[in-house]
Design a protein around this nucleic acid. Structure first.
Lengths: 238, 238
DNA sequence: GGTGGCTCTCAGCAAATCCACAGGAATGCC
DNA sequence: GGCATTCCTGTGGATTTGCTGAGAGCCACC
């Protein structure tokens, strides 16, 4: 379930992006290195040997495709998978081509939760290790990261993409209270500047779908946020 | 449970704020350094190597984001987490972006108790060490900082946010007598200028909820303040 | 160009929370 | 015991917070 021990190289010239992605991945136990240019990236790929590269297409010196080409020279049959980042609307045929391989792409601005999902998906496909099970579960809810399917008990539940990211975030942090702004900042694009009422609305949607088949699971902690209710016993603290 | 040995850098140009935060963190065993400008902050980040930075966005010379960017040059994979401070309603995209990573933000005016809670939460997430357990306990009362849950014995107790901060403050300083003005200054916004009767009112609320399930725990020390204390058995007077 | 699904805004309702106030209770002092 | 001070707590109104239905815009697909 966790990305523990994986090495990821993040390449982007915008420092705010690399910082964002670095912190998010660190929280999942990943070791992260950062490069702000293509040449720097190539150096780090050789020395750091990442399991995955998050690669902005637009770089100050060598562009992302060129980096990829030169990476290819070094990597034998064993390819390091790549998650491309592109500016909005810049999705080029070449990227589509790459994505058809084992790679993937996202356009900016993206939601951090979505990025974590993609990275895990790529590693699941390419990584020898198999401790990245695609299933999360909480109480009688199960969520499959690969197929984006969700069940409550034995009945399948249809969720929209946003609902899915929200539930995923809640499940990964089950038992912890997440504030609405925290939720908004991770589940929505980092540039989304809607009101936190969005979060309330989507929680409402989720509840309507989930709680139709069992007792309510998403608990409101007034003045603080939401949490998946865990029947916590006192005395279980450490 | 305690922040012992953690180093925190507090950056704000208002001296009243840095003084306030410094005092509070010192009481938790933190080593605190203070900077009143961005350039000063950058110097201290290099020399002092804080575990966390409390960073006002608005600074006289270099603004908070610029500080962050330049911090980024020094920190490679290992990032120092940041708690941003912003004026009310100034939450900007960039802050939200950072917050989606692992950082957090608060807007002024804040309650000091709330800040301590946030800082502990951030360190819990990012810190390798794990001696910051989220549970506090006193007598048969347990309090979970993450989930904001409280139990007395085996029954869960619902508290409002203010009640929660108050109990938290009392528990952290269990056995110590806290004056009403001390409590007012830490549990409420530092700009709150209500009467200390507020404290009496909330103590009353807390007692009503807590003491419904056991002997009274909050003792009034007349003319001085309040303290948490396990009531002595009758006849066991010393 | 129509349809349906998804996202998001908005506004109104309901309920929880916060706070001021003031009369009554408790405490300590003489 | 009587008195002054301090503390407690019920009442009530203002404010905040959370929930949800209605509907507008957008996009993908047919």
């Amino acid at each position: 379930m966790d990305l523990n021990g994986r090495r990821v190289l993040v390449v982007d010239d915008e420092k705010s992006i690399t910082a964002l992605v670095t912190m998010a991945l660190n929280l999942h136990g990943t070791t992260v290195e950062v490069a702000h240019s293509g040449s720097q990236a190539l150096g780090l790929i050789r020395s750091f040997r990442p399991h995955l590269v998050v690669l902005d297409v637009m770089l100050p010196d060598i562009d992302g495709f060129e980096v990829l080409k030169r990476m290819g020279w070094d990597r034998n049959s064993q390819m390091t998978p790549v998650l491309f980042l592109t500016a909005r609307g810049e999705v080029d045929d070449r990227i589509r081509g790459m994505a058809a391989g084992g790679d993937d792409y996202m356009s900016k601005p993206f939601s951090v939760e979505e990025m974590v999902l993609r990275i895990k998906a790529i590693l699941r496909r390419t990584d020898g290790y198999d401790n990245l099970g695609p299933r999360l579960s909480f109480a009688d809810v199960e969520l499959d990261e690969d197929s984006h399917e969700v069940w409550r008990g034995s009945t399948a539940i249809e969720l929209t993409p946003t609902e899915f990211r929200l539930l995923h975030y809640l499940m990964v942090n089950a038992g912890q209270v997440l504030s609405k702004s925290q939720i908004r900042d991770r589940v929505w694009d980092y540039s989304f500047d809607g009101k936190v009422n969005m979060v309330e609305v989507y929680v409402s949607y989720l509840r309507k779908k989930l709680d139709a088949h069992g007792p309510p699971l998403i608990r409101t902690v007034r003045g603080v946020g939401y949490t998946l209710r865990v029947p916590a016993e006192p005395g279980a603290g450490r």
